[in-house]
């Protein structure tokens, strides 16, 4: 079999694998989120602490837009990474920017969780808070995973075409992260 055919097969397998991986993440996060929906729908009261005064001390909504910005930035850089499947110059730089955005997002999640816990708003305090921690935590961990993948893409020594393909796959992952985050924000704060 020719080298081109082997490379095509690898690319096809990698692309299939990535779609399947994304599908399993959707199912995992979807299960967590449907748990949240079921609990919220079955609950007579659903009190989020920052709706009862905390928002005056800490602009939670602003913080979430801040975090959305970081994840959006990561998506933009990952789009540049892919170069629409065509090798482009400066790929490692874009990878590092993705890593940076992801790490900032994760660090922000940890900081906010720690800050809430310090106020006594721990996961065991109520079911709404438990859901908040679980859903935020799940996205934070998945974003950190995306950052680690971006480090891998930046450091791996592969031909430019292959790197662009990996960039395209990374882009799909980050697009999903943005979608999950927007769903989380909508579910937890807006609805």
């Amino acid at each position: 079999m020719s080298a081109i055919a082997v490379a095509d097969r690898r690319a096809q397998a990698a692309s299939t694998g990535m779609w399947l991986f994304l599908a399993s993440i959707v199912m995992f996060y979807g299960s967590l989120f449907s748990g949240f929906v079921l609990l919220r729908a079955g609950s007579e009261t659903w009190e989020m602490p920052w709706k009862t005064g905390l928002s005056a001390e800490w602009p939670m909504a602003v913080d979430h837009w801040f975090r959305t910005m970081w994840i959006g930035f990561a998506v933009m850089q990952s789009r540049r990474l892919s170069g629409a499947g065509v090798p482009v110059a400066g790929l490692p730089r874009y990878s590092w920017l993705v890593v940076l955005a992801g790490v900032f997002f994760f660090a922000r999640c940890v900081y906010v969780a720690g800050w809430l816990a310090a106020q006594g708003l721990v996961p065991s305090a109520s079911v709404p808070l438990a859901c908040w921690y679980v859903l935020n935590g799940a996205v934070a961990v998945l974003v950190l995973g995306g950052s680690i993948a971006a480090v891998w893409v930046a450091l791996e020594r592969v031909p430019p075409t292959q790197r662009a393909r990996r960039g395209a796959m990374l882009q799909r992952y980050w697009m999903l992260m943005l979608a999950l985050w927007l769903i989380t924000v909508t579910g937890l704060y807006l609805v």
Binding site: G35, L39, V122, P123, S124, V127, A130, C131, Y133, V134
Partner: peptide, 8 residues
């Protein structure tokens, strides 16, 4: 529920 004491 078991480790963090939540009540999901």
């Amino acid at each position: 529920d078991r480790v963090a004491g939540t009540s999901v």
